[in-house]
Design a protein around this nucleic acid. Sequence first.
DNA 1: TATGAATGAGCCTTCATTCAT
DNA 2: TATGAATGAAGGCTCATTCAT
Lengths: 214, 214, 214, 214
Amino acid sequence: MAEKALEKKKQKREALLNAAFELFSINGVTDTSIAGIAERASVAKGTFYLYFKDKYDIHRHLIAHKASAIFRRAKAEIEAQNVAKEGGINPSDFSLEDKIILLSDNIISQLQEDPSLLRFISKNLSWGIFKNELIESRDPEDVDFASIFHEAIDASPVKYRDPEVMIYMIIELLGSTCYSAILYGEPLTAAQLKPYLFDAIRAVMRSMEEKGES
Amino acid sequence: MAEKALEKKKQKREALLNAAFELFSINGVTDTSIAGIAERASVAKGTFYLYFKDKYDIHRHLIAHKASAIFRRAKAEIEAQNVAKEGGINPSDFSLEDKIILLSDNIISQLQEDPSLLRFISKNLSWGIFKNELIESRDPEDVDFASIFHEAIDASPVKYRDPEVMIYMIIELLGSTCYSAILYGEPLTAAQLKPYLFDAIRAVMRSMEEKGES
Amino acid sequence: MAEKALEKKKQKREALLNAAFELFSINGVTDTSIAGIAERASVAKGTFYLYFKDKYDIHRHLIAHKASAIFRRAKAEIEAQNVAKEGGINPSDFSLEDKIILLSDNIISQLQEDPSLLRFISKNLSWGIFKNELIESRDPEDVDFASIFHEAIDASPVKYRDPEVMIYMIIELLGSTCYSAILYGEPLTAAQLKPYLFDAIRAVMRSMEEKGES
Amino acid sequence: MAEKALEKKKQKREALLNAAFELFSINGVTDTSIAGIAERASVAKGTFYLYFKDKYDIHRHLIAHKASAIFRRAKAEIEAQNVAKEGGINPSDFSLEDKIILLSDNIISQLQEDPSLLRFISKNLSWGIFKNELIESRDPEDVDFASIFHEAIDASPVKYRDPEVMIYMIIELLGSTCYSAILYGEPLTAAQLKPYLFDAIRAVMRSMEEKGES
DNA sequence: TATGAATGAGCCTTCATTCAT
DNA sequence: TATGAATGAAGGCTCATTCAT
C-alpha cells in the first residue's frame, strides 16, 4: 500500500477512536451505537468493522489508550517541571512517597480538567487496565506504564513489602475516591479530598515499609 | 384489597427481584431483558411494569437492597459473635479501628461466599450506594446503614477529622480492592489481601485522628 | 386465552404462511426477506418471530403443508370421481398400478394448474418431504401421506419387493421429470410427458413385482 | 499480452473456480460470499469481478464444468476398461441397455467417491445441465456430453421411441434417487439402490422400445 | 391486577460492488 | 491487470412498551 493510503487509514482509525470516546463519555457504552460512532467519525457504518470487531473492542482499545495517555502525560509534566526550575530540587531528591504524590496530583488535575475522561475510564482505572491485561494487541505507542512505577520503586532507598500490592491499593484508592469527588463533589470536592487522600496514600505506604527499615 | 391479595403482590415483587438478581449476576444488566426477568419470575411480561418502571429501576432497587443486606448481616453476625463468647471481651472494649476491621472482615467473607453478589454490586459498593442517594423510594426494610457507622464513631473516645471522609475512603478502598481480588485473585487473593488491607485501613484511620488527641 | 384471540392467532399464522408462499414462489427463498413476508401479511416485522423461528422454519412448514395438501386433494378428488360415476367401476377393482397412475395424473394436473406451487416445492417433492422427516412439529392437519400409499399397497393382491423403494423411485421420477416439463416444456410438455411417464412408472412397478408372482 | 501473463490469468481463474467449488460444497451458495471465494483463492476481492460477473455466474460455470467432467470421466473409464481386457468383449457387443447401465454405474461411483461433488451439483444433474442450456459461453473443454448418448443410440440396433425423452427420464431418475441415497443413505444406501435402479432403468428403456422392433 | 400478543424502532452485521491507486 | 479500502443498502433479529382482554 502507498504511504499516503496508510496515512489515511491511520486517520480513519483515529477519527473512530475519537468519535467513540466522545459518545461513550456522553451516553455510556450501552447507549452508544456503532452507527453513531461511524456517523460522528464521518465514515460509513461498514467502515467501522474494518478497524474494530465491535463496540467492546473499540472500548477496550480506548481504555488502554486513554489510561496510557494519562500516565505518560503525568510523567512528562513532572519531568518538565523539574527541568523548568533548574537548579531547583533534584528529582532524585524526592522520596518515592513524594514522587507518587506528585504523580497522583497530576493525574487528579488531568481528570478534573477533563471530567469526560474520568467518566469514560470511570471505574476502569484499576488493576486490570494497569496491567494492560484486558487487551491483547496493545497499540505500539501505548507504553506499559507499570514500568513507570517499577523504575521509581527500584530507585527508592526505602524498600517495601510487596510493592505491587502497594501500587494496587494506591491506584484503587485514587481511582475510586476521585470518581465521586470530581464528578459529583460528593462527599467532598476534589480539592478538599486531596489533602486527605495524600495523607492516606502516605499512610498506606508507611504501613508497607519493610520492617528492617527503621 | 384483601390481605391475601397483598401477600400475592409481595410475592410477585420478590420473584421479580430474585429473577433480576440472578440474571444480572449471570449475564450483566445489558444482556438481561425484561422478558427474561419476567419469564424467570414466572410472571407475564406486562406484569413487570406494574412493579418497576424499567430495567434500571429494578437494578437500583436491587443494589440498595443487597448492599443494605450485606451491612445488616455483618452487623448482626458481629453482635452474635459477641453474645456467643459471653463473658468475653465487651464489645464496647473494641476500639473503632477494631470494629471497622471486624466489619470489613465480615463483608469480605460474605462477598467471598457469594461472588455473584460481588459481581452484581460490582463497583457499586461505594459512596453513592452507601448514602442511598440513588434511590428515592427506599424499601422500608432497607435501613440506612450509614447510621451503623455514625453510632460507632460517636461512641469512640478517639475522635477523627471529618469522619465521613474517612468512612468514604475506607469503603472505596475496600470495595475496589476486593473486586479484583475475589473475582480474579489478581493481583493477589482475598486471603492474601486481608492483612495488607487491614493495615492500610488502620493507617488511613490513624492519619485522620484528631491532632489534639494523643 | 379467549377463543376469539386464538382464532386471530390462527389467522395471523395463516396470513404469514400465505405471504411467504407467494414470495418464495415469485422470488425464491434467498431473495425473500422477513420484512417482505411480514408486510405482505399485513403484520409487523416482530410478529413474524412470534410464529416462526426464521425464514427457513416457515419454509419447512410450508413444504410439508403444501405437499400434504397436494396428496390430500389428489386422494379426495379420486374418491369423488368414483362416487360420481356411481355404479361405475368399483375402486377396489383398480389394480395398484392403476391407482398410482390415477394419483400421479391428479398430482400432475394440480402442478400444471398452479406452477407457482411446483416452483415452490420444486425439487423438494422428494423422499425427505415424503417421510416428513424434515419437520419435527408437523401441523396437525398435515396428515402423514405416506400412509395413503401403504394402505393401497397392503390392499394390493400383487406383492412387491421392497415397496418403499418402489414408491421412492416413482416419486423421484415424477417430481424431477415434471419440473422441467411443466415449467419449461423441456424437453417435452407435460401433456406429452404423461404417456411416457405412465409407461415408465408401470415398467418400474413390474420390475419390482415379487418373483413368485407369475 | 505475454504468454506468461496469459498463463497467470488462467491460473487465477482456476483458483477462483476451485475456491468457489469448495465453499459452495461446504456452505452452500447462499452462505458463500465473494469475499470468501477471493480469500480462499488468494486473490483480491476486486479481482473476482475481472473473471466473473457475480456469484451465480461462477456457480453456473461450475455446474456445467463439473457435470461435463463427470460424463467425460465416465466415458473415459469405460473405454479404458475395455482396452484393458483386450481380447475381451468387444464394446460394440454391449447393448445400449448395457452401455447405459455401465455409464450409470460409473457415475454413481464417482458421486459416492466425492459426496461434496454430489452436494454441489445436487439437484442440478438434470436436463437443464445436460443440455447445457444454462450457460451461454461454455468453456471450450466442457464438451457437449449429450453427444455421448446420441452416438450410442444411433449405433444401437434396437430403436427407441423418442430417445431424448428416454434419456431425460433416465437422467432424472438417476440424479434424484442417488442424491438422497448417497448423502443420507435414505431410504436405502447407494449399494442397495443400484440393483433396483438398474432394473428400473432397463424397464424404462424396454417400455420405450419401438413397437415394430421385436 | 394480570396477561401476553402485537408492535416497530433500532440495533448489529454482512456483503456486493466501486474505484483510486 | 490487480488491489483492497470504502461504501451503504439491506436484512436479521431483539426488545421495551402498549393495550385489549
